[in-house]
Design a protein around this nucleic acid. Structure first.
Lengths: 238, 238
DNA sequence: CCTCGCCGCGATACAACGTACACATCAGTG
DNA sequence: CACTGATGTGTACGTTGTATCGCGGCGAGG
C-alpha cells in the first residue's frame, strides 16, 4: 500500500506531489485530453491517443490516473474550473446564471453532455463548488434543506437534459460535413422524412411545416428555463 | 444493392419480410437484448453475448440490425411501446402523465437513461408516437408551433436529466452489493465524506446533516416537475 | 562520497470488443 | 431439377482498456 490506493482521486491530488520534476502531471494530462475531446469529440479520447499527444508510452498516464474513468473525471473537473457563477445575486439570477453558464460551458465542450453515466455523477471539487454556490443562492429564504436541493437539482436536470439533446444534434451535424441552416435537417434526417411520409404524426408534421425557430436552440433553452424558474418562484413562495 | 441498404431501419421493418420463416427476427432480437440489459445493465450488451443468448453465431444478428447502434435503437423502440400516454386529458395532466410514465419506464429499464448520445436522439416509431401524443395535448390552446414544441421539450429535458442522475445513482448502488437506506450513501461516497472534511462546502454539509428526504427520489422528481408545469402554465398563459 | 530503493516511464502482452468477409445452407420459383 | 437470393456459420482483423515486468535516474541513509 504505497500511496494509499483507497484514497480518492482528489485526496491524492491535494497533498503536494513529492516529486515535482516529472514530464507528466494531472494538469498536463487534463489539458491535453480536453484539447483532444474539444477538437475531435469524446470518442477520440483513447488512452493510446492521449499518450501519443503527451509524447509518452501508452501506459504512462496510468501513474497519474487509475484508468479511463479517472481521466474523464479529471477532464470534467478541469473544465468546470471555468464555471464561475457570480456571487451575491438573488436566488433567481443566481440559478439563471448557473444554467446559462453551464450551457455555454457545454457548448464549448460538447463532450460534457455525452459522458458515460458514472462520469456524470462524479463529485469533483469544481463541481462541488458550483453546487455550493447554487445552494448558498437559495439559502436564507426560509426553505428547508430538501426543498433547496430539489430546486437546484431541478434546474440542473433541465440543463443537462436540454444539453444532452442539443449537443447530440450538433455532434451529429458536425460528424457529417454539413453546412448549416435549414437544408441541414433534411440531410440529417431522411429518417424523419420517412416517418412523416407515413402520415401517422399530423401534429408533428404541422410543427415541421409552420415552426420558424426550429434551429433557435438558445430561445428554446431560455423559454424552458424561464418556465422552470417561474414555477420555482411561485410554488416555493419566493 | 440487394435490399436497399440506404433505407432506414424502420423503413426496412415496415415492408413485410419475404421470408417469414426464420429463427431470428427483430422482435426476438429486441426482447432478448432488453432482457440482458434489464438484468445486467447496458455494459452487458455485447453482440457476442446477444448472439449467445439467441443461440446463434456472433455475426448472425447483423442480418437484421446493421450494427450495435441499430440494436440499441431497436431496444429503445421496443420498450417505448409500453409507454401509452392516455389521450384526451388536458394539456397539464397529459404532460404530467408523459413525465411520470417515462420515469417509470426508465426505472424499469435503467439502461434507458445511460444510452450513448446517438441512441438518445433516435427517432423510433414508438418515440415519435409519444411525441405526437404530447404535441396533440398542447394543440388547440392558441400556442404557436415553436412554443408547443418548446414546452414538450422542456418537460422531456427535465425528465431525461433527472433520470440520468437517478438511474446513475441506482446503477452505482446495485453495482456494489449495497443494502439500502442511509448507510448506503456513506458506502457509496467516501469521496463525499472527504469533500465535506475539507470544510469548503458549508451549505452542502448543512444539507447533508439536516435533510430528511435525501432518498425520496419520487418526491424530488414530482416537486421539480410540478414547478416546471406551473411555470409553463403561467408563462404561456394556459 | 557511495549506495540502495523507489518512483516515473517504456515495452510487451492479453482478453474482449465491433465487425468485415467468404462460405454453407435452405426455401421457393423458373 | 437447377437457380437465386436471403439467412446463419466460421474465421479473422484492428482497436480498445489495462495488467505486468523491466529500466533508469533521483533522493535518503551510511
Amino acid at each position: 500500500m504505497a500511496t494509499d490506493k483507497n484514497a480518492s482521486l482528489w485526496e491524492r491530488l491535494e497533498r503536494p506531489s513529492p516529486a515535482p520534476r516529472q514530464t507528466l502531471s494531472p494538469q498536463r494530462i487534463a489539458t491535453t485530453a480536453v484539447a483532444i475531446a474539444d477538437a475531435e469529440g469524446l470518442e477520440a479520447i483513447t488512452m493510446r491517443r492521449l499518450a501519443t499527444d503527451l509524447g509518452v508510452a501508452p501506459m504512462a498516464p496510468y501513474r497519474h490516473v487509475s484508468g479511463k474513468d479517472d481521466l474523464l473525471e479529471l477532464m470534467v473537473d478541469h473544465v468546470y474550473a471555468d464555471l464561475r457563477v457570480p456571487d451575491g445575486l438573488g436566488w433567481r439570477p443566481g440559478l439563471r446564471a448557473l444554467a446559462v453558464l453551464t450551457r455555454e460551458l457545454m457548448l464549448r465542450h460538447r463532450w460534457l453532455a455525452q459522458l458515460p453515466p458514472q462520469a456524470k455523477l462524479s463529485l469533483t471539487p469544481n463541481r462541488m463548488t458550483v453546487a455550493e454556490r447554487a445552494l448558498t443562492a437559495l439559502d436564507g429564504l426560509g426553505l428547508d434543506a430538501d426543498t433547496m436541493m430539489s430546486a437546484f437539482r431541478a434546474v440542473d436536470a433541465y440543463v443537462h437534459g436540454a444539453m444532452s439533446y442539443e449537443s447530440a444534434v450538433s455532434a451529429l451535424v458536425s460528424e457529417q460535413g454539413l453546412s448549416g441552416g435549414a437544408e441541414l435537417r433534411d440531410d440529417l434526417a431522411p429518417v424523419m422524412m420517412w416517418h412523416m411520409q407515413t402520415g401517422r404524426y399530423p401534429t408533428f408534421q404541422h410543427y415541421l411545416r409552420t415552426a420558424t425557430r426550429k434551429d433557435d436552440a438558445s430561445w428554446q433553452f431560455d423559454l424552458g428555463l424561464d418556465c422552470l424558474l417561474d414555477g420555482i418562484a411561485s410554488r416555493l413562495g419566493l
